[in-house]
Design a protein around this nucleic acid. Structure first.
Lengths: 146, 146
DNA sequence: CAGGATCCGTTTCGATACTG
DNA sequence: CAGTATCGAAACGGATCCTG
């Protein structure tokens, strides 16, 4: 039989978000970004042991995709050359407002976890974002100094 | 009836977003919400013909899930009793800030589509959100008044 | 005809085992 | 520790069928 090939330019653009939904519309990518941004995770092992229980191949795949999209970078821990660490890029850090709004929405409408963080964000959103940005800016530079 | 066999308590909670990632971390749900919020889509047919090309069973499934999560409701078009229309609930409308931040992020970092809308949002985010909220509040009430 | 439900071949995901 | 290989399970897409 003649097999129809799918070259997979399936996601035609034309409306906002069409391109980014590939990365933002994925559970694991979202959770990895959240864990880096909100919990400070940086290593493969930390993500693996995160209690969502991601599989090793899926984790590797998503890290690869996030790198391909320029949202994270990889490098060696400057303090311990054996360890591989991941860092958010500028583009990744810029997702903080998206994550923040998600957390606020979830807190308002779903049963909320970690009310402390939520209250902190609610109290001063701008300051929280600035702090997150600064914290990550330093780490990114450190990681880039390979 | 269809798949009702989903106990799957796989998603343990403990950190913000864990509960909501099920809906926010799904391509199709995200696109449906976007199409309702930004493009004013309301009917099954409109979603189906949206150029992302969703399959009928997938669309029906996602609409069901969005309803189960209380993000949309269904009802008859008050102007045409034969038509089924979907509306954002309050909870759904509250996703506007999340969508807005996503659009801004995508515009800043991916090749941007529909620059007009993006500029509109950038110019006055708060006013855009207020307008969206008001527009939908009216529609929701109209849809519920039947 | 709009709004789905059902069946089925294909693609992707994910749990586990294994490796440098 | 940081991943790859494998392989069954689930999701997807597409056509078709059903119901009001």
């Amino acid at each position: 039989m003649v097999t129809k090939k799918k070259p997979s330019p399936k996601w035609r653009s034309g409306c906002p978000l069409n391109a980014s939904v590939e990365i933002l519309g994925d559970r694991w990518s979202l959770l990895i970004i959240r864990d880096m941004m909100l919990r400070g995770f940086r290593s493969y092992k930390e993500f693996l042991e995160s209690y969502e229980g991601i599989a090793t191949n899926i984790l590797a795949d998503r890290l690869r995709k996030l790198m391909a999209h320029g949202i994270i970078t990889t490098g060696r821990d400057p303090l311990d050359g054996r360890k591989v660490i991941y860092s958010l890029t500028e583009k990744g850090i810029d997702l903080a407002p998206v994550l923040t709004e998600m957390v606020l929405w979830a807190a308002a409408h779903e049963k909320t976890e970690n009310p402390g963080l939520v209250q902190l964000i609610q109290k001063d959103k701008e300051q929280f974002l600035a702090a997150a940005r600064e914290r990550w800016a330093g780490k990114t530079i450190a990681a880039r100094a390979k």
